[in-house]
């Protein structure tokens, strides 16, 4: 007796798991940089976050929902890495556990699990921690290249924090701002990641390598990263030219903060981004505009997480209004 089935009789070797594995490979350069810059504490944050995310997913699907164990699709591992990437290396372990629980338990599984969640789980976890523990979430250990075991690091402000501070300072405190200005890292430091910040966001170089890998493996297309970064770049560049305010200097703004991490790895999350090309472009442009508004006109120095989460909420609407053109129908 032969096997019979409907067509097609062959399937692409690309599976959910292989896609997720490729994303993890793409995240590896940034993981390496985080270990080089922030040492054993970065390792602690990463391991705690990944282990907690996988564990919560396993426990909840297995014992609470009594459903199939889905951890083998590796999506919880990615959430774990991305959550860790969005935390400072000094983050207390128990707080990371709470963040992981919120990310997996609330943002992902409560919405129905992989494919059903509206918001990016790692970002929900990060924002929850940011609002709940603002002090711990804004202390940034200084990078300490290759001193792996050193856990006793000095904290510094992030580049964006310094810029925000300068921007809001009145002329009376100009002296203080000048001091801060000298603390700004140069482009090269920001590019390779020798700067304060969340452990995964510091190195533009590592994130770029990851992006190129994902593009080559066709995990994602270039549209969301490009339109996100380009929109943000245009807005800051225009403002910078018009105001000559260093806060808006576009290169620094792109290389610092979570913009590249967000544009390459979080806004491109399949589940929480639009399905069609046109929708993805609208989504990415929206992320760029919101990041600009939040970074420069709100109380926060950083706006990537909020921008992506807000745009996540618009995805069903975007999907509804951006169907693909069907062959043999009029071009709009």
């Amino acid at each position: 007796m032969f096997k019979i089935s409907t067509t097609p009789h062959i399937n692409s070797p690309v599976t959910t798991q292989s896609l997720m594995r490729d994303v993890l490979i793409a995240l590896t350069p940034a993981i390496i940089v985080s270990l080089l810059m922030f040492g054993i504490n970065a390792l602690r944050v990463l391991l705690t976050s990944v282990a907690a995310c996988v564990m919560f997913e396993y426990l909840i699907t297995r014992y609470l929902l009594k459903a199939k164990n889905t951890t083998s699709d590796l999506s919880a591992v990615i959430t774990g890495v991305l959550l860790a990437f969005n935390l400072p290396s000094s983050m207390p372990t128990w707080m990371i556990l709470i963040g992981a629980f919120v990310a997996i338990g609330i943002a992902k599984i409560a919405f129905g699990g992989l494919g059903k969640n509206i918001f990016n789980p790692a970002l929900v976890g990060r924002v929850f921690l940011f609002i709940s523990f603002p002090v711990q979430m804004t202390q940034w250990p200084k990078p300490d290249f290759l001193s792996f075991m050193n856990t006793d690091t000095v904290t510094s402000a992030t580049t964006l924090g310094i810029l925000k501070h300068i921007d809001v300072s009145s002329s009376a405190t100009i002296k203080a701002s000048q001091v801060s200005l000298t603390e700004l890292p140069n482009y090269w430091q920001m590019f390779i990641g020798y700067t304060g910040g969340c452990i995964g966001e510091v190195s533009a170089l590592a994130l770029f390598i990851g992006l190129v890998y994902m593009l080559l493996r066709r995990v994602i297309t270039w549209h969301i990263p490009f339109y996100y970064v380009a929109t943000f770049f245009m807005l800051t560049a225009i403002t910078w030219f018009n105001t000559d305010n260093i806060h808006f200097e576009p290169i620094t703004n792109i290389l610092s903060g979570g913009l590249l991490l967000g544009a390459f790895f979080m806004a491109t999350d399949y589940v929480t981004s639009p399905m069609t090309r046109q929708g993805q472009i609208i989504f990415a442009v929206g992320c760029g505009i919101l990041t600009y508004i939040i970074r420069f006109y709100s109380a926060y120095p950083e706006g990537v997480s909020f921008a992506i989460l807000i745009m996540n909420a618009f995805v069903p609407l975007i999907d509804k209004f951006t169907p693909q053109r069907v062959y043999g129908t009029k071009r709009k």
Binding site: H9, T16, L19, S273
Partner: peptide, 28 residues
Amino acid sequence: EATKPDESCCIRCGKCAEVCPVGLMPFA
């Protein structure tokens, strides 16, 4: 080769719409 792989949840990657030569959205 003859065995169909197990189905899992749609991850909304949009690849089905990307490859459809008619421009349909199979996921929808």
